[in-house]
Amino acid sequence: MENEKAILPEVQQIADAINAAVKNAGVTVSINPSPAEQHSLLLFPTKARECAQWLKAESPWQLDYLSNVSGNDWPEDAITKQTPKQPVKDAGEEPMHPCLEAVYHLYSIRQSLGPIIIRMRTENRSDKVELPSLTPIWRSAELQEREIFDLYGIHFEGHPDLRRLLMWDEFEDHPMRRDYVEPDDYDYEPTPHGDVLKKSLTQQEGTV
């Protein structure tokens, strides 16, 4: 925990270092007002993989360990509500747009420091939900990004095996989104059993 406190005033320095090392990175700091003081770095999705590669391999922090990947959902009404309802205030002047977000908690085993948090935001919540996958850089993200794809519907481009993780393959919605409505009757949800049931019925009737 002492490590954490030592590194936190340096978040702005890390952002500056990335901006100096990666061309047009445009990294900004997202301020966290809670007593935890875990501020994060907001990456541009188009430059994110380059920045992440630099953070892991070349930066002085050597962030070799990706601990946690989390999805967040920010619909219109969660943002427009006035503070203190608004959780994370942006440092920039631009207010946050409705989006889906992926948050990565990074640590360095070699230097035992962290967490350094990076986040990426999609353009909107409906049709432009692509983010670059960081699985090629940290394999730890493999199952966690699949889970976010499943529960939030963020498409991670460049993920080696992007399938649903927890829900069944035929399921169509994303249950962790804040506007998800539970179906009245789960029988209407498409399940793999539908095909099996049809097949068994036809076999019973003898018309294969």
Partner: peptide, 19 residues
């Protein structure tokens, strides 16, 4: 208060964290 936090401990099975 508004904000976010990530905490983790060494659980018997590995690193257990809550975000």
């Amino acid at each position: 208060p508004p904000g976010e936090a990530y905490g983790r401990i060494e659980a018997p099975k590995g690193e257990l964290g809550f975000y």
